[in-house]
Design a binder for these strands. Structure first.
Lengths: 194, 194
DNA sequence: GAACCAGACGCAACTCCTTCGCGTTAAGCT
DNA sequence: AGCTTAACGCGAAGGAGTTGCGTCTGGTTC
């Protein structure tokens, strides 16, 4: 049902998918996300609307695909010399990007794809890959490293929960507090009031 | 923009809102959620489609309102005699309800409402109220009680993250593991592999 | 390398969701 | 009771979403 598993990866189908995705990005930048419609996107991409409906089935599904691509990290997390520094830097950047208006829109769009496994799981996989890379690097230094599952539970999940459900309660030092909780160290000064 | 803050809470407006909400629930049970359309709902509710569009602006917004109402807990958490037992029972029930097909649909619908504060925050408030009630009761017994913020971070957020992003990775004893992490006790046997 | 098969696309017509202006109704207030 | 204004009903116009059919292209097989 999704366009990802195209049965014909090469040739025309690939060109259509590429041009449609590009049209979404262009029009989103020009007109804003709320102005996007399938006929508009199709016209910009040089295809007919029915093609888009057949491949993606829905505007939501198409936007979900594009959103997941934009959420894909473009590089491995930077090396700051220690597990704690790496995690804090990564979590801070993650929180910044995801809590922005654009980031929240992409997350929401990504969550709207096919409800079963699919686009949403990819977002989590991206975070897991980054955390795993940080963990492997720290293990190479001889540091004790929490498992990826634990980091997802203790750092990523609370951040995402606040971004999605409590957008107003995302303070500055919160990521530091979460990393400290994950590593068992001291909490950052601006820990939650409890 | 949302229908909640109706400037005229009484009289006809209230009747319209009530009948429209009821129509959504009825039609959702009869035809399934995907078959819902604004004209259909309006006809069942005995109003014109333009009324629905004016009040809610969008089918998504209307479904978001209805979903939040369905996510509202109908009773205070049961008393099992101890903080740990109360938390485990509540978390297990929460996970069950939210990870079901209907629960996930309601959560997704609720998240689609007005992006700023609104319906999504209500969902979190519901959980916070329940946790606070459990906490107050435990404090009355003389138990040491983690703050609501901590419980949201350590128990609710990981559950919700898995439900939304990793629907396949929600094992049986996971909630027990999370409660144990929150209370500092031993982990349940089926803890994550890390 | 040439013919075959199947999936994907373009085209066009149809349905109906969505929007908007205007007149009417009723809720809240003095 | 009269007034003000928000909310609703109605109807028309525009546009999104859907579908059937023919054509084309990419992959496969002989």
């Amino acid at each position: 049902m999704s366009a990802r598993a195209t049965t014909r990866p090469g040739g025309r189908s690939a060109r259509v998918q590429q041009s449609v995705h590009q049209a979404v990005r262009d029009l989103e930048a020009e007109l804003g996300r709320d102005a996007l419609t399938v006929p508009l996107i199709a016209a910009r991409a040089g295809v007919t609307p029915s093609t888009v409906y057949r491949r993606w089935g829905d505007l939501r599904e198409l936007l979900s695909d594009v959103a997941v691509e934009r959420l894909r990290p473009d590089a491995l997390p930077a090396d700051h010399g220690s597990l704690r520094a790496d995690l804090e830097a990564w979590a801070a950047q993650f929180a910044d990007e995801m809590s922005s208006a654009a980031g929240r829109t992409y997350i929401r769009d990504a969550l709207l794809g096919d409800p079963e496994q699919g686009n949403a799981a990819r977002c989590s996989d991206y975070a897991a890959e980054q955390l795993k890379a940080i963990g492997v690097r720290a293990a190479g230094r001889g540091e004790a490293v929490p498992g990826v599952e634990t980091l997802l539970d203790v750092v990523v999940a609370p951040l995402m929960y606040r971004i999605l459900f409590r957008p107003s309660d995302l303070s500055e030092g919160y990521t530091g507090h979460l990393v400290a909780a994950a590593l068992g160290g001291d909490s950052a000064p601006s820990a939650p009031k409890s």
